[in-house]
Structure formats: structure tokens, C-alpha cells
């Protein structure tokens, strides 16, 4: 698995240079942190990559890291799969509150349509180029993005429960 990471990493480095921020092998997943501006180009490149054809988008999700440095508070994680050679990889992009736009990959994967809507719904990440970026599971006029870490699970106005000792 280590050499697969190196192999794909080298091809990406050759093609995209410093758009590839870092590469590592996390458990069984070659993981690449890439610049968000290039994510669609990188996915297109991997789609027709000569060694592995990553033509299946397994999952796409957002993550909020409130303690990260200012520019990298939000992350979008893409997991791709080459079904023929049975190889999976993970791509990550980081973005910030002030520049929350990430290019949409719906033009390449129809799967991404609802997954990006879900990520927008819960994290407020704006996918540029998405055909219909509206909330999907929550109400459309809900003014906040509930999966962000600043929103507690419990209703903040309740006084009858003290669960500061439970959970985060």
C-alpha cells in the first residue's frame, strides 16, 4: 500500500506540482491533501489516470476543525475507488470560513450532487458550479449549519439539564 501511495503521489506531483500539499498512508487509505482550487482537475486526471482509474466516488463529506489554523477550519473529504483494481484513495481539501467556496465535482460524478447538498446543508460549504445548491435534509430557510462545532446538540436555552460532563 505504501508504494501505491508513492506511485499515485509521484504522478500527481508531476502533473500538479505544489497543488499537492501532502501525502500519507492512513491505515489502508492513501490520502492526499490538495489545494481546493485544483480539486476538480485532479479528480478529472484521476478519472482517466493510466495506472488506476478512479471512476467511482464512494463518499464525500465535510469536517469542521474549529481549532485548526485560520485558513483550514473546514475540510471536504472525498473517497474514490477504482473498482477494477480495487484500490481506494482519499482526497482532502481545506478551506476557511471567509473563503468557503469549493469547486463542485458534480460535472464528473452525479453522486456528488446530493452529497454536496448535504455538506452545504450541514457545514455551509459553498460548492461553486453546483446545479442546485439548496439544503436537502433540513429546512431550506434554516439560517445556520448544524454540524458546525459551535452548535451544541442540546437546546442551549434549557436550564433543567446539566450535561457538561457528557460528550464534548
Amino acid at each position: 500500500m505504501e508504494n501505491v501511495t508513492q506511485e499515485i503521489g509521484k504522478a500527481l506531483q508531476d502533473k500538479f506540482g505544489d497543488a499537492i500539499v501532502s501525502q500519507s498512508l492512513i491505515v489502508d487509505f492513501p490520502t492526499f491533501v490538495v489545494k481546493k482550487e485544483k480539486i476538480l482537475d485532479i479528480m478529472k486526471f484521476l478519472f482517466d489516470f493510466e495506472l488506476y482509474k478512479f471512476q467511482f466516488l464512494t463518499s464525500l463529506c465535510g469536517v469542521h476543525f474549529p481549532d485548526n489554523v485560520k485558513e483550514e477550519e473546514y475540510s471536504v473529504v472525498y473517497q474514490l475507488h477504482d473498482l477494477v483494481r480495487n484500490q481506494r484513495i482519499r482526497l482532502k481539501v481545506f478551506t476557511s470560513e471567509s473563503h468557503i467556496q469549493v469547486p463542485s465535482v458534480t460535472s464528473l460524478f452525479s453522486t456528488a450532487n446530493w452529497l454536496e447538498r448535504e455538506t452545504f446543508d450541514f457545514f455551509g460549504i459553498q460548492f461553486t458550479g453546483h446545479p442546485n445548491l439548496v439544503k436537502i435534509l433540513n429546512m431550506e430557510d434554516q439560517p445556520y449549519f448544524p454540524m458546525r462545532k459551535q452548535y451544541p446538540l442540546e437546546d442551549g436555552t434549557r436550564e433543567d439539564k446539566d450535561d457538561s460532563k457528557f460528550g464534548r
Binding site: C61, V63, H64, T111, W114, L115, E118
Partner: peptide
Amino acid sequence: ISDGGRTPFRLSLRRPCFIYYQ
């Protein structure tokens, strides 16, 4: 994603129904 705490930092569920219903 675990940060070593008592609960997951993030748990994303890949639900097949949600993905193919679109």
C-alpha cells in the same frame, strides 16, 4: 475521525439509499 476523546470527532455515514435515490 477520532481525536482521542470519549466521542467521535466526526462520524460520516455512507448510506447507500441516500446516494442512489438521487
